[in-house]
């Protein structure tokens, strides 16, 4: 009896070699640590002190000159005017208003009446007709 020959047995699939996971794990871990670090820094970063060099166009943020403790959370409010302390100089471009100056006013001019424009020595010229007139609306109440 013939023994069965050693027929070639299909070889079992060799396990596929997987890529090494460690480099990716290291990369993801490092990225996560960086993200958490950035978020933490943004959350717990103390409010910055605004110096007078940051004043631009009359708009700054409080506080101005006193350092703020790192543990203090302050509400940041825009202010329009800053009083310079002795020795301080305004930043370039800032508008400086002296406390002694009067309140700024709008400049206007006097409008002479049309009749006053004729020289008195000359006979009055015939007035040019004006066909269009801007008026208040409504009718005159007696």
């Amino acid at each position: 009896m013939e023994t069965p020959t050693n027929r070639p047995v299909p070889a079992a699939h060799a396990p596929k070699s997987k890529p090494d996971a460690w480099p990716m794990r290291l990369a993801l871990g490092a990225g996560g640590i960086a993200a958490v670090s950035a978020l933490t820094a943004a959350i717990v970063m103390p409010p910055q002190t605004v110096t007078n060099t940051q004043v631009t166009q009359q708009t700054v943020q409080q506080p101005l000159s006193t350092p703020v403790p790192a543990s203090t959370i302050q509400v940041v409010q825009p202010v329009k005017y800053v009083q310079l302390l002795p020795g301080q100089t305004p930043p370039p471009g800032a508008q400086v208003i002296s406390p002694a100056d009067p309140t700024p006013r709008t400049v206007v001019v006097n409008v002479p009446a049309p009749a006053a424009k004729q020289p008195a020595a000359q006979p009055p010229a015939a007035q040019k007709p004006v066909y269009i007139k801007t008026t208040q609306s409504g009718t005159v109440v007696p």
């Binding site: 006013r105 709008t106 400049v107 206007v108 001019v109 006097n110 409008v111 002479p112």
Partner: peptide
Amino acid sequence: MTVAAAVG
């Protein structure tokens, strides 16, 4: 009110 100039 500041008057700056005459018109003429």
